[in-house]
């Protein structure tokens, strides 16, 4: 029995010791770094709020949505996430709202063709979405111009925005 324990220790002691060492190191890293990583993940959205909602200077998370706060710390709008399928993969959007009015759109993540589909990240183009009202669909080439060479990407953004504008259609 004693020789068996010795044999197991002889063979796997190093493995156990390394495992223990890295377990400890990773635990320390987790405690030290995780709050920072969470803050990074959150500020990725929060930093965008002043551009998305006019008058807002900061924001805070509230459930799945984000609230935009003005200089006095009052809630002046909301920011929601939206998503859709683009030409090269999923597209993630941030939408700024003031009451029922869409005030801004920002592309958080996209995987479109560089130089063609990536034109959808153009800030001036995204500004043309502002003013859409909840309940009324936004029409491509009427309310918003489509990009030449990026028809599918433009349509994907418009579709994603419409899903948020008309929630009933999106949940169908």
């Amino acid at each position: 029995m004693k020789s068996l324990i010795l044999h197991v220790w002889h063979q796997s002691g190093l493995l156990l010791a390394t495992g223990f060492f890295f377990g400890l190191t990773l635990g320390v890293a987790q405690v030290w770094l995780e709050p920072r990583i969470q803050a990074n993940r959150l500020s990725e959205t929060l930093d965008r709020i002043p551009d998305l909602v006019p008058g807002a200077v900061s924001g805070r998370a509230s459930g799945r949505e984000f609230e935009a706060l003005d200089a006095e710390g009052l809630v002046c709008g909301t920011v929601t996430r939206a998503g859709g399928g683009g030409f090269g993969g999923p597209i993630e959007l941030l939408l700024g709202w003031k009451g029922q009015e869409l005030t801004g759109v920002y592309i958080l993540a996209q995987n479109e063709t560089p130089g063609l589909g990536t034109r959808i990240t153009d800030p001036d183009w995204l500004k043309s979405f502002a003013g859409c009202q909840r309940g009324t669909a936004c029409v491509l080439n009427e309310d918003v111009d489509g990009w030449t060479g990026a028809t599918i990407s433009s349509k994907a953004v418009v579709d994603a925005v419409n899903t948020a504008l008309i929630p009933e259609v999106g949940h169908e």
Partner: peptide, 24 residues
């Protein structure tokens, strides 16, 4: 058991680098 020890060591270091990079 050496390959297992190598892999364990590498995976530990990669996790550390990955987390540090995500933080900074």
């Amino acid at each position: 058991l050496r390959i297992v020890v190598f892999t364990l060591t590498i995976a530990g270091f990669v996790t550390l680098v990955d987390k540090t990079m995500a933080a900074f």
